[in-house]
């Protein structure tokens, strides 16, 4: 229980005792007489009883709540372990067949093939490589969740500046307006504790998405600020937006939204962002309006 909880629960007892003290200044030696006759003691007793009931009820409620939370955590942990095992098995069962297919295809191209066959072989080869990458990425995503972080002090202001500069130089940037807004007054953006490479990857993925899903002429804003204990990073764009039905889905592995089907990608970019940020004790969020645009937000504990 919090301190104010204790004060509230003990208030009736306090009031009862106070009334008791005010109503009597005699020394009573016989408790039976006292109970029957004295309003003062009744008041005290009532007050104390109410307090005891409140405290007992509160403790019971807290206990039930904790048990419930433990159960939810247990179920989540179990689901996550199941998923990890599934990914390991999937990886294990696919690696040998994929090795065979890749070696077989390479053998087929040892002798020069006729044009039409060469085209077929290279098309199949490209798809096998794609599956290989997909399986590897899924496994790496699962591994990320269970590998401990190597952390240092990271200046998010510098990191965001770097990412924005990288993305500005990207070939697909076109004439999109990309601006970075960092706080300077009254104080600059606080640092965070984390793995700089992973954080860079997460922010880059979000910003790269913003570029991919907008058209030339759109505006992209990267904003960061602190709200006391956390820093908040927002990546906002004037792109097509995400429909309400899809908003919760985009963080799921291999999910590809309606807008995403025409854009190349693995369906693992956002799950990776979420895994990295949650690994750092933060969380991710998203607000969007169709035809107006999208704001992805990242919250990380500040130092």
């Amino acid at each position: 229980m919090k301190w104010w909880g204790w004060i509230l629960s003990l208030l009736p007892a306090g009031v009862g005792i106070l009334i008791g003290i005010l109503a009597t200044n005699e020394n009573i030696t016989n408790p039976v007489l006292f109970l029957r006759g004295r309003f003062a003691v009744l008041a005290t007793l009532c007050g104390v009883t109410i307090s005891i009931i409140i405290i007992a009820a509160a403790q019971f409620w807290i206990h039930t709540q904790k048990k419930h939370n433990r159960e939810i955590q247990g179920v989540r942990k179990q689901a996550n372990e199941d998923r990890q095992r599934f990914l390991q098995r999937l990886d294990h069962e696919l690696k040998n067949p994929l090795t065979v297919i890749r070696a077989g295809l390479t053998n087929m191209t040892y002798e020069p093939l006729e044009d039409y066959l060469a085209n077929e072989v290279s098309a199949v080869q490209a798809q096998v490589i794609r599956i290989s990458h997909l399986v590897a990425d899924l496994r790496k995503l699962a591994a990320l969740e269970i590998t401990p972080l190597e952390t240092t002090v990271v200046s998010m202001a510098e990191l965001l500046t770097e990412v924005v500069n990288v993305v500005k130089d990207q070939a697909n940037m076109g004439d999109r307006q990309l601006t970075l807004i960092l706080p300077h007054a009254p104080w600059p953006l606080p640092d965070v504790e984390g793995d700089p490479d992973l954080l860079l990857l997460a922010v880059h993925n979000l910003l790269d998405n913003a570029v991919k899903f907008t058209a030339p002429g759109d505006t992209i804003e990267v904003r960061a600020f602190d709200d006391g204990s956390d820093i908040v990073i927002e990546i906002a764009d004037t792109g097509p937006g995400i429909s309400e039905a899809e908003i919760d889905r985009v963080w799921e592995e291999l999910y590809r939204g309606e807008q995403a089907r025409s854009v190349p990608g693995s369906g693992l970019g956002l799950p990776l962002v979420r895994a990295i940020i949650e690994k750092h004790g933060g969380n991710v969020g998203l607000r969007s309006r169709p035809d107006q645009g999208t704001v992805f937000s990242v919250r990380l504990p500040a130092i």
Binding site: D91, L94, N96, L98, R102, R139, A142
Partner: peptide, 28 residues
């Protein structure tokens, strides 16, 4: 190997492997 974690692969090297390559790999 198909060991995903770099820590485990580093262990394999310490145990005396000269190199490792993840399945599925490009034969070249």
């Amino acid at each position: 190997t198909q060991v995903g974690e770099s820590a485990e692969r580093a262990m394999a090297l310490m145990e005396g492997a000269d190199d490792y390559i993840n399945k599925p790999f490009d034969p070249n």
